[in-house]
Nucleic acid binder design. Sequence first.
DNA 1: AGCCATGCACCG
DNA 2: CGGTGCATGGCT
Length: 128
Amino acid sequence: EAQNWPQVTDSELQKVSRKATVTPLFEKILSASDADLKLARLIIPKRCAENFFPDISGLHGLRIKIQDIDGNEWEFHYRYWLNGGSRIYVLEGLRDYMVSKKWQSGDTVTFYRVEPGGKVVMGLRKTS
DNA sequence: AGCCATGCACCG
DNA sequence: CGGTGCATGGCT
């Protein structure tokens, strides 16, 4: 009994009880083509992609899991197109998300990072 | 100088 | 003939 009584320092308690930190990464106002259900893809501004999304070397990109604000997890495909000597980054496979959130041109999508873990969360703000 | 919104060729 | 993946061009 006594030997199992927790003897923790204040700083340990702080660490244990600390809430997850949520850092806004970037947001984008949806263009008409971002909101096109047939395309179902979102152009990620280059600087945002390279600063905040995983590095991708090959043209095939990678599958990326992103959680929405309600904790539902979605899986998209993150890749890029070659454009001149540069890249255009694109998040594909958004159709279900778009339908579910009534994603429309002019709305604003915001990406967050949650630590610890580094999970990416996305939220949608409708035009007011 | 070059991003990125969108046009559009071409491949199945 | 619908989508992918790139080309084009408006715009900053």
